[in-house]
Simulated assay, not measured.
Amino acid sequence: MGSMIPIDGEVVDGEAMINESSFTGEPLSKHVKKNDTVFAGTLVEEGKRFIRVRNLQDESHISNIVKMIDTNESLKASIQAKAEYLADSIVPFSFLGFFGVLALTRNVTRATSVLMVDYSCAIRLSTSIAVIGAMLEASKRNVLVKGGKYLEAIKDADVIVFDKTGTLTNANPTVKKVVPLNGYTRDEVLRIVACLEEHFPHSVANAIVNQAKKKA
C-alpha cells in the first residue's frame, strides 16, 4: 500500500484500490481484481496484487505520454507548412534582385541591401513563433496541446467534449454536510468517521480527515 506501480501489466492475483488520477484526473480510486489492467505511474492506495508484466518501462503508457510531449513540436500546423513554402519561394527572387542591382550599379553594398530586406526569414519564423507562443500560453492555463495542427483544428470545431472530473470540477472533494442520527452529535459523527478514515490515503477519506481537523 502506498507504492507506485512501475510497469504496465495484468493483475494475476489479489485485489486493490488504484489511484489513476495521473492519467484520468478522476479523484476516486478504482477497484482492480484478477485479469484487470494496471498502468505504470498509478498508485496503490489499498490492498495487494500480483502483476504480470505487459509492457516494459520504455513502452509503458506513461512513457508514451512523455514521448508525445517531447515530439509535439513536430506536429506542425498546415499554416506553418504554407509559410515555409512561401518563404522558400521568395529566396530565388531575392538573389535575382541581388545580382540585378549588382550588375546595374557595380556596388556590392547596394546589392547586399536587397538581401537585407528579404522577408523570407520573417515569414518562416513569425508563424512558428506564433504557434509555439499559443501552445505555451495554453500550457500556462493547464491545457496541453499536442501540436500546431491540433491548435489549428480548433477553428473548425463546433462541439467540444470535456472530461468533467479534474477538468471542469475540482478534483479535491470536501465535506459539505454531516447528518447525525440515533442521538449522536455532528462533532461526534465527524470525529468517529475521521478516526476510521485517517489510515487510508483515499481522496474522500482525506476530505473527512481535513474537515475534522478544521473543527478540532
Results as ranks from 00 to 15, higher is better:
155 K>G: 03
168 L>T: 07
142 N>H: 12
141 R>G: 08
139 S>K: 15
144 L>P: 00
170 N>W: 06
155 K>Q: 10
139 S>V: 10
151 L>N: 07
150 Y>F: 10
162 F>D: 09
161 V>G: 09
160 I>F: 13
149 K>W: 01
148 G>Q: 00
148 G>A: 02
152 E>Q: 14
158 D>W: 04
170 N>S: 13
160 I>M: 10
151 L>F: 11
151 L>H: 07
168 L>G: 05
155 K>D: 05
168 L>M: 14
153 A>P: 12
161 V>S: 12
150 Y>D: 02
166 G>W: 01
158 D>M: 02
159 V>T: 15
147 G>N: 01
156 D>L: 07
150 Y>M: 01
165 T>C: 04
159 V>S: 11
170 N>H: 09
139 S>C: 12
137 E>I: 04
169 T>E: 05
156 D>S: 14
152 E>C: 07
138 A>M: 14
165 T>L: 11
167 T>E: 07
153 A>L: 06
140 K>Y: 13
152 E>Y: 07
141 R>S: 14
154 I>D: 02
142 N>A: 11
160 I>K: 04
142 N>Q: 11
159 V>I: 13
169 T>M: 08
152 E>I: 05
161 V>K: 05
150 Y>A: 00
155 K>V: 07
164 K>G: 05
138 A>N: 14
144 L>F: 15
154 I>Q: 07
159 V>K: 12
146 K>T: 03
170 N>I: 06
164 K>V: 06
161 V>N: 06
146 K>G: 06
165 T>S: 10
169 T>F: 11
170 N>Q: 13
142 N>L: 07
156 D>H: 13
165 T>D: 05
168 L>I: 05
146 K>W: 03
151 L>D: 05
152 E>R: 03
144 L>H: 06
144 L>E: 02
145 V>Q: 08
168 L>S: 09
140 K>H: 15
159 V>D: 06
137 E>Y: 14
155 K>M: 03
140 K>E: 14
160 I>R: 05
160 I>L: 13
141 R>M: 13
147 G>D: 01
146 K>F: 02
153 A>G: 14
165 T>V: 11
146 K>R: 12
157 A>D: 03
153 A>R: 12
143 V>F: 02
140 K>F: 13
140 K>S: 14
140 K>M: 11
162 F>E: 09
164 K>F: 03
153 A>H: 08
141 R>C: 10
154 I>T: 13
146 K>D: 04
161 V>Y: 09
154 I>F: 10
147 G>F: 00
141 R>Q: 15
148 G>S: 03
152 E>N: 09
159 V>P: 04
143 V>W: 02
143 V>C: 08
150 Y>S: 02
158 D>N: 15
146 K>V: 01
144 L>A: 10
166 G>N: 05
149 K>E: 04
143 V>G: 03
165 T>W: 01
162 F>W: 11
162 F>Q: 09
165 T>K: 08
148 G>H: 00
140 K>V: 11
157 A>N: 06
144 L>R: 04
145 V>T: 10
